[in-house]
């Protein structure tokens, strides 16, 4: 197996990412941020970066438990809230999703999970208006590439500071920024049902898949070259097909072109237009 090093300079990462949050929030007239805090490492890191960029008093951390959520999730989120001194709120989503779940006794775990993720999005965007803060995203590069998210749910945000960091890099930066150890060390989980963990559900570890994704995406390896570099062929095929299959989750819906000038094709401006 070839040597693959995903280590990042955490001081420089912190500087660029806090600068990004600061710039992208203040240039559109805001000074505050809203972060959904799950108790996991990704949202913890986004919250730390937002607090450093804007000051803790300008960050609202929202805990949004469902009745089946683990107690640890709530406690771990609270650890971080106390450590950072950010503002916080706890809004249960049980009453939002239960009526829909009751409509269909056959509802699958995945559908329920999606409902919860989207209920949390609704809460965050409501708090965004109430707090006058932008929703800071918490999706990392690994899960975005693998499509391991709920569209318009946990993937919804106004800006995402950690979307170009692989999960293992999220861990490295989180350690450097003193995210509490219980958050950094526990197995990653969407906590949508009891005992769920990302790595069981995906069928591989973040450690393994990050190294492969780094070759395929960042280093532009052909799949066959990744196999020659020492990765199992089935694993490579699985990851390559996941990346392709979930491209739709990384895009706005395509608009059917009929006019001379169409949003997305030949009407091209950055979001930062005029700022």
């Amino acid at each position: 197996m070839i040597d693959i090093d995903l280590t990042i300079n955490t001081d420089l990462a912190r500087e660029i990412l806090t600068g990004f949050i600061q710039s992208e929030i203040t240039r559109v007239g805001f000074s505050r941020a809203v972060v959904g805090l799950s108790g996991g490492i990704d949202s913890a890191l986004s919250c730390v970066l937002a607090a450093q960029a804007l000051g803790p008093e300008n960050v609202l951390a929202v805990r949004m438990p469902y009745k089946a959520s683990s107690r640890d999730s709530l406690d771990h989120a609270q650890l971080l809230i106390d450590q950072l001194g950010v503002q916080s709120k706890t809004i249960e989503i049980t009453d939002m999703v239960e009526p829909l779940i009751h409509l269909d006794p056959e509802m699958s775990k995945v559908r329920k999970g999606n409902l919860m993720a989207r209920a949390r999005m609704i809460v965050l965007y409501d708090q965004s208006e109430a707090f006058k803060g932008l929703v800071v995203g918490t999706s990392n590069k690994t899960e975005i590439l693998l499509g391991y998210s709920t569209m318009f749910g946990d993937s919804a945000s106004a800006l995402n500071p950690i979307g170009d960091l692989y999960k293992t890099q999220v861990r490295q930066l989180s350690r450097a920024l003193n995210v509490p150890a219980p958050i950094v060390d526990k197995p990653p989980s969407a906590d949508l049902w009891a005992g769920q963990t990302d790595e069981t559900e995906l069928g591989f570890t973040y450690e393994e898949v990050d190294r492969l994704l780094y070759l395929l995406i960042d280093q532009r390896y052909m799949p066959q070259e990744a196999v020659e570099a020492g990765f199992d062929e089935k694993f490579v095929d699985l990851v390559v097909s996941r990346v392709r299959r979930f491209q739709f989750k990384r895009m706005l819906p395509p608009i059917a072109k009929i006019s001379n000038r169409t949003i997305g094709y030949d009407f091209l401006y950055l979001r930062d237009w005029g700022t």
Partner: peptide
């Protein structure tokens, strides 16, 4: 545009 963050202190 800055790109290529590794373990070096410079991009």
């Amino acid at each position: 545009p800055g790109r290529g963050l590794g373990d070096n202190e410079k991009l």
